[in-house]
Structures are given as structure tokens and as C-alpha cells.
Design a protein around this nucleic acid. Structure first.
Lengths: 136, 136
DNA sequence: GTTTATGCAAATTCTTTGCAATACT
DNA sequence: AGTATTGCAAAGAATTTGCATAAAC
């Protein structure tokens, strides 16, 4: 178990617990958006369902993760580690219809969208669905 | 009760029932994305919760409505009536942080996004969050 | 008359809350 | 030692399924 996870938690003023480290580690390894049930699947031997819910909430509050839009109904989350210089509030995600995985596309930045007057945009999320690199 | 709803249902090879007409009518009147519970709120005197779920599923299968992305966890739906000449698979929605309403922005078309090679896009959904025209 | 939709009951799944025991700093 | 986190039980939403009745074609 790398120390990296402990450092990330400390950097975010969070107590270092093994559940938090393991959840963080799972995000780092999988590198795709994960739902609560994905994490539960992965970690249910070790941690209670409720603890995983609370861990996600804690990470969300600390902006360590963010919600990833999904049309499946399940709420998914992804890490936010790369956000300091890039645009914090613009996310492009790709969801593959074959393998079901959703990942952040970092190579692409969201084009400016001109909204009708009166609208103030604070955050933009683009979800592209189709076939991913691995499945095509 | 306008006949319009019956025609729309027939055009989509669906049986004309009063629940379907009322759900459709609600979408036509409200002109914003609605969740199951929004509809239940509106129609609970008349129809069972389950029937509304099934109506939504039927409409979804017929492409009469589509899912609207939302980061609140609740699944929202919107009508797809304007889709013949416009781009069927590109939706821009705006969710207001003040009033909570989500609506389709028809004035804006989604700019082309260049994906890394290997990716095939079939559908794109942009969710913009901020303050809407009415609340600003 | 045949097929499809509805309502009700009940089962599942998803998420949250309270509280005592435990782990972190 | 003091504070925050965890696990367990249980409550509360959200969603699905089965089946008999009712409505649509």
C-alpha cells in the first residue's frame, strides 16, 4: 500500500483511515468513474456499505472527487487530482456503451458555449457516449 | 384536454390511455425536465406511482422522452418532439442552482468536440449549471 | 375477443440517520 | 484525552416485479 494515499488525505485535512486510503487507492488504480456499488463490490469484505457512503460524501465535500454525470441512474464519482491549473469546473467524460466504463477525457477541453443572455454558467459537464478506444 | 396528446401517442404506436395523455400533457405544459417525483406530485390523485414509472419507461423506449443528466441523483426526463431536423443526439441543458429547474436550451448547438482517435461518439449531452434567465 | 395497461401488494435496491464502540491525532 | 470515524441496526426513498382486474384496439 503506497504512502501516496495518506499524503493526499493529509493534504486535504482529512484523517488517515484505512477505508479512506482504500477507496482513494481504488480510484487511483481504476482510473475510471466509480459508483458506490462499484466500490462496495471491491471493498465489501473490509468495510461497511455505510462507511463507503460516508467516505464518498467526505471526499465530495473536500473536492477530492466530483460527481460524474451518468444516464444510468447510478451516481458515479471520479478523482479531481489534476485540477489546479486546468479548468476546475469543466469536465468531459466518455461513457462506453460496450464496456460501460466512464472516464475523464483530459486531452479534450470543452469549447466555449455562448448562452442566451441572462444565463450565468458556473459549471459545465459534457458526457459523450459511444464506443471507447479499447472496445472499437 | 387537447387531442394533440392522443395524436402523438398514436404516431408512436402507443395505445392512448389517460395516464399517458396526462403525463405527456404535463411535459408539454411545463416545458422543463421532470423527474418521476415531479410527475407523481402532479398526478398522484389520478394514477399510481407504479403506473407513472411504467409510463416513463414506455416513453423512453419509444424515444418520446429522453433522460436528462442531473447531478442531484434524481433521474429527469424531457420531451424529444423537436428532434427530426435538429441533431437527435445532442442535448444542451441548463440547470439553475436557484430554482432547481432544468431546461433544454434549443438556441445553442453543441460545438464539435474532437475526441482522441479510437473513440466513436454517438451521443453528446452537455449540462450547464448556473443561474437562469428568470433568477438572475 | 385478444392484447396491453393499470392498480395494489410486496420485494429489491439505494441512501440516510442514530448511537455506542473504535481508531486517529 | 479529545475528536472524528466506523459498524450495526433500522428507517426512509426510489425502483422493480407479479398477478388479477380493467381498458384499448
Amino acid at each position: 500500500m503506497p504512502v501516496k494515499t495518506a499524503e493526499i488525505l493529509k493534504d486535504n485535512q482529512l484523517r488517515v483511515t484505512s477505508c479512506r486510503r482504500d477507496v482513494l487507492q481504488t480510484f487511483l488504480m481504476k482510473r475510471v468513474a466509480l459508483s458506490h456499488s462499484d466500490l462496495e463490490e471491491e471493498l465489501k469484505e473490509n468495510y461497511d456499505r455505510v462507511t463507503i457512503y460516508r467516505t464518498l460524501k467526505t471526499f465530495l465535500d473536500s473536492d477530492l472527487i466530483h460527481k460524474v454525470l451518468d444516464d444510468s441512474g447510478a451516481t458515479k464519482y471520479a478523482l479531481c487530482l489534476h485540477d489546479v491549473q486546468s479548468h476546475d469546473h469543466e469536465h468531459v467524460h466518455f461513457k462506453c456503451e460496450k464496456c460501460g466504463q466512464t472516464n475523464c477525457i483530459e486531452e479534450v477541453s470543452l469549447p466555449r458555449v455562448e448562452l442566451p443572455s441572462g444565463y450565468v454558467a458556473k459549471e459545465m459537464n459534457l458526457l459523450v457516449q459511444g464506443i471507447c478506444k479499447n472496445c472499437s
